[in-house]
């Protein structure tokens, strides 16, 4: 059982300086094992700061982050060990590739964990398998891969550390539609196979709606909503008021409802939207 808990977590940049800026304040929540959480919010809503506190890259200026009940900052000598329970894939992770071969690059994390060569090798294979990186690519230079392949190799480098919680910051940014689908499918498969917690930061409500079972909404550095996808999108109107994009189909359903068509509005996929609209028309024609 592995949980990640935040207790009244806040972060202020340049604390005590004239240009200090509070990026996150008073966030308390628990990520349960096996959840697939989508994090949404504007640029500057505190999302990026929040996730950097999850694996100890940033130390909260207030509050604490607990992994399996231990405050990760309690004992600094154990910080590294605890940090590795949370695997963080930052934006444009392909910019972190540096080794001569893809294999060596994926092995960088496991090597830093001090594992045996056999163990490292098996982890590299496992991670490459999850990310659908063919064996023949493993001995190529990471700099010769295509954009989508580089991205997958970089994510494999984090997965190979076998984190309990996997956090991804906009893993599909800059990719073409097929590349976006590939990455999200890979993540979904990993989540289903391993039953480990996945936290996905995304600008795309449509993607979050399609893949996550819970949604966390950040606004101005505070937690606005944290609930199941259906519950959060019940607040579609409020979300739209804070300037967040809501899934396209939810927007359409809200308009239809305002104009007097009796449809459900806590819906976020095209297929379910088609169903409620069809039902509404059956209701009219009796």
């Amino acid at each position: 059982m592995s949980t990640l808990r935040l207790d009244n977590v806040g972060f202020t940049y340049q604390k005590g300086m004239p240009d200090e800026k509070t990026a996150v304040s008073g966030v308390s929540l628990t990520f349960e094992e096996g959840d697939f959480v989508g994090i949404i919010g504007h640029t500057g809503s505190g999302k990026s700061t929040l996730i950097q506190m999850l694996n100890g890259l940033l130390k909260p200026t207030t509050g604490s982050v607990y992994i399996d009940g231990d405050d990760i900052w309690d004992d600094k000598s154990k910080l590294r060990e605890k940090r590795f329970k949370v695997g963080l894939v930052l934006q444009y992770p392909e910019y972190q590739l540096f080794e001569e071969t893809v294999r060596k690059d994926i092995a960088f994390g496991p090597k830093n964990l001090g594992l045996s060569d056999e163990e490292i090798d098996s982890r590299v294979r496992e991670a490459a398998g999850f990310l659908r990186i063919p064996e023949k690519l493993l001995d190529r230079s990471p700099f010769d891969l295509s954009g989508g392949e580089k991205r997958r190799a970089a994510i494999a480098g984090v997965l190979a550390m076998r984190p309990e919680v996997l956090v991804l910051d906009e893993p599909t940014a800059g990719l073409d539609p097929r590349g976006r689908r590939d990455i999200l499918d890979v993540i979904k498969n990993y989540h289903e196979a391993e039953k480990k917690t996945v936290i996905l930061v995304s600008h795309s409500m449509d993607d979050v709606a399609r893949y996550a079972n819970k949604v966390l909404v950040m606004n101005n550095g505070t937690l606005l909503y944290y609930d199941s996808v259906g519950e959060v999108f019940k607040h579609a109107l409020e979300l739209r008021e804070t300037g967040l994009n809501i899934p396209t189909v939810t927007g359409i359903l809200l308009t239809l409802r305002e104009r007097g068509l009796d449809v459900d509005t806590d819906i976020y996929t095209p297929a379910a939207a088609a169903q409620t609209i069809t039902d509404a028309f059956r209701g009219i024609s009796g």
């Binding site: 396209t248 189909v249 359409i252 095209p270 939207a273 088609a274 069809t278």
Partner: peptide, 19 residues
């Protein structure tokens, strides 16, 4: 290797449902 906008996807689903 592309997709259609969500609104087109919804429309096509609705047509499939007989609207």
């Amino acid at each position: 290797g592309l997709e259609v906008p969500p609104v087109t996807e919804l429309t096509l689903d609705l047509i499939g449902n007989g609207l």
